[in-house]
Write a protein that binds this DNA or RNA. Sequence first.
DNA 1: ACGTTTACCTACAACGTTGTAAACGCGTCG
DNA 2: CGACGCGTTTACAACGTTGTAGGTAAACGT
Lengths: 344, 344
Amino acid sequence: MNGDFMAATLHDVARIAGVSIKTVSNVINDYPHIRPTTKQRVLDAIAELDYRPNLSARSLRSGRTGVIGLAVPELSLSYFAELADAVIRSAERHGVTVLIEQTGGDRAREIELLTSPRRQLTDGLIFSALGMDSDDSEYLRVGYPLVLLGERIFGGPTDHVTMRNVDAARAATEHLIALGRRRIAVIGAHEGEVIGSAGLRLRGYREALEAAGIPFDPALIGYTTLWHRSNGADAMRALLASGVEFDAVFGLNDTLTLGAMRVLQEAGLRIPKDVAAIGFDDLDEAQYSLPTLTTIDPGREEIAETAVRVLLERIASTDLALPPREILADFRIVERESTAPAAA
Amino acid sequence: MNGDFMAATLHDVARIAGVSIKTVSNVINDYPHIRPTTKQRVLDAIAELDYRPNLSARSLRSGRTGVIGLAVPELSLSYFAELADAVIRSAERHGVTVLIEQTGGDRAREIELLTSPRRQLTDGLIFSALGMDSDDSEYLRVGYPLVLLGERIFGGPTDHVTMRNVDAARAATEHLIALGRRRIAVIGAHEGEVIGSAGLRLRGYREALEAAGIPFDPALIGYTTLWHRSNGADAMRALLASGVEFDAVFGLNDTLTLGAMRVLQEAGLRIPKDVAAIGFDDLDEAQYSLPTLTTIDPGREEIAETAVRVLLERIASTDLALPPREILADFRIVERESTAPAAA
DNA sequence: ACGTTTACCTACAACGTTGTAAACGCGTCG
DNA sequence: CGACGCGTTTACAACGTTGTAGGTAAACGT
């Protein structure tokens, strides 16, 4: 139909409409002072030629691309897939496109990515850090708008959208305590970590114990390096092998918890009767496991929406000195079978 | 450190190196005829200024962006998240970036996306169609390199990378038959569909039955509209309610199968003892379910790698008349507990 | 020794857009 | 009536890159 078709340019439209290219440009950019008749002629010409602005030219001239970057550790981790989904949908509502990068959670790649030439393709970056920590926060002092996600770095030089890890973990633990559980195991702790998802959530756990007057027992803490299913399964196996007694488990994320639940059930323990379980993330999967998993909805949708909004505000703002903001999303407990009160 | 930093341009490099901008450009683009001493001076200047080519300018001038698009229904569906992961990693190996779009599996949005202005941001598109069907194949006749994934459209005008649905489904069914199962239920069929993942996989199922001399029983087929976990659970509930007897279930994808398995277990049926189960996709999750799920690895990595390679070949090729290719990835059965031979 | 190739390098234009400055016509004000 | 302001439009330059065409030596062939 149009094999050797050349895309129409402003010049073509201008010629057809009998105006200058700048007037066409003005129409496209909603410049106010245009005579309605002129505007209509231009719009007609645009429609006739099916004109589309050349985005490369526009971005060369204006310095804006209309694309934002999203850097996550791995899309095959459900949490980040669902986060990316939410960010893309949110970006779409705001009329921008998302370019996704995977860091593998590797510190070196994260740092490299911050100054990668690809940053030129985007007007700003939503960056979910996993490998970097607070010592690296100077690397975040980049020359473009950057919104940080995650809980590896606090008090950095950029806007930061995150969740109420401590409060939510405390609420999760209190939920188990309210069921009458006293021996609450944790799966997914990181040795010595204070900041970071694991550290913060463990802190919430300890706060809840303390408030309830339950002594903290280090034997109940299952450490893992990563938060994949297999890590949860391994940690639970280790816990069972250790012989320590427990009547509930708080998995620091859903994936870990589901892995741990599998091992519990293999060992013949019933959930929630023998061991109640609660996770963190509210993955889609948590509503279809056996039993369905009680978990914390950390406000992922809100985080995505806020991150996009804040980033676009930064991009639009001329005020570079605007102080960095830290925004916390609301969480809620999603109650399901894995913490159902004893039936029989 | 460099707040009001202006990025260096070819001009800056040229000035420092004492050559013309074109020579700098030539160095960057590996033009062969450059005196080694000159080249070194240019490289030194580039290093000194930390020069990075301006991608917008380059793409305006050259018509190439170095970005490829990937359109999938939804990242929150694990299959597509894992596919996107593989595509991104593969693209990275080839030095290009991936821009992801979500269609929601909606036909209208899929069609719209094919001519969206965003296509300008990409040199080509890897398109996983779900809503469109063979009647829509003319929409695929677009002015840019396009590689089709999925099994909704065959014999279209573009390159097509897909999996051996019929063969793989047949192998899955044969695997169940080899266990001695004769009453094999299917979860996830689509009413009246011939082409499409559901239709093709159902055909493989029927071929296997026929080869084994087992009559096809329509009562064993569970229909669903979508392939989410809840659909698998619902279909299995319907099957159980119908009272039909079966000793195995072939879920047309893993997600469906996991949903169905949950319902089976709730109903007190043991897997694989009472009912063996096999899925399709080899999601990460399949190795951590209870029991672990035997499934078909449809060659997702190979599909991603091939799609990227074929797309880049199209982009690089000047020969527009190159006939469309259809490439099928290899599959294999991944045996796990859900089809383990009767132990006790 | 002289035309011809070859290696190397450069000037200039062009890609399609938007910002700047200024021009134009027209009504208004002093 | 001339200066001015305002709404509307335009010419021109610029963004940073690569393609084209060409130029200058040195190397080559005869």
